[in-house]
Amino acid sequence: MKTQIFLTVNGEQHELWVRNDRTLLDALHDDIGLPDVRYGCGEGVCGTCTVLADNEPINACLTFAVQAQDVAIQTLSGLTNASEELHPLQKCFLEHGAAQCGFCTPGMVLTSKVLAQRNPSATRQEIRYELVGNLCRCTGYTKIVDAVEEYFGQVREQASTGGGDR
C-alpha cells in the first residue's frame, strides 16, 4: 500500500506515492530524480545523503519520506537557483582541489554552508567538528577544510562590507 505525500524540495512541491518504508533518500534520488542526494551507508555515518531540512543538515537515509512533509528540503542542486553559476562555496572547492570523485561533496558543501550562516568565524577545529561523519575517501580532508575556511573568509568579508548573505 502506498501513501500520498507532498514534499517541498528546492522550493518546488512534488506529489509522490510512496511505501511507508521508503526513505527520504529513496524518494529524492529515485522518485524525484535528484542525483546529488546519494546513498552511502544507509546508517547515518557517512554523510553522503545529507540534505537540509528547514536549513539544518539531516541524514536522508534515516528519515522516512512520509515524515518529511512538513519541512522545506534543500539539496545541493537547490543551492544555485537554476542559474549556471556555481555557489561561491563550490568555487572554493574547485579552487582548492577539494572535490575529487565528488561523491561526498554535496554533504560537505551543505553542512559547511549552514555552519557559515550560523558562525562564519568558526575556527578550523570547529569546521572539522561540524564535518565529522562526512566521509571522504579521496582528499584526506585537508583540502576540504582549506576550501571551507576560504569560503568562511569570504562570508566574513562580505558581512563587514555589508554584502549579501550567500
Partner: peptide, 9 residues
Amino acid sequence: VGNVRVRNR
C-alpha cells in the same frame, strides 16, 4: 553523540 545530522534529529 553521533555527528551534526544525528544531533539535529
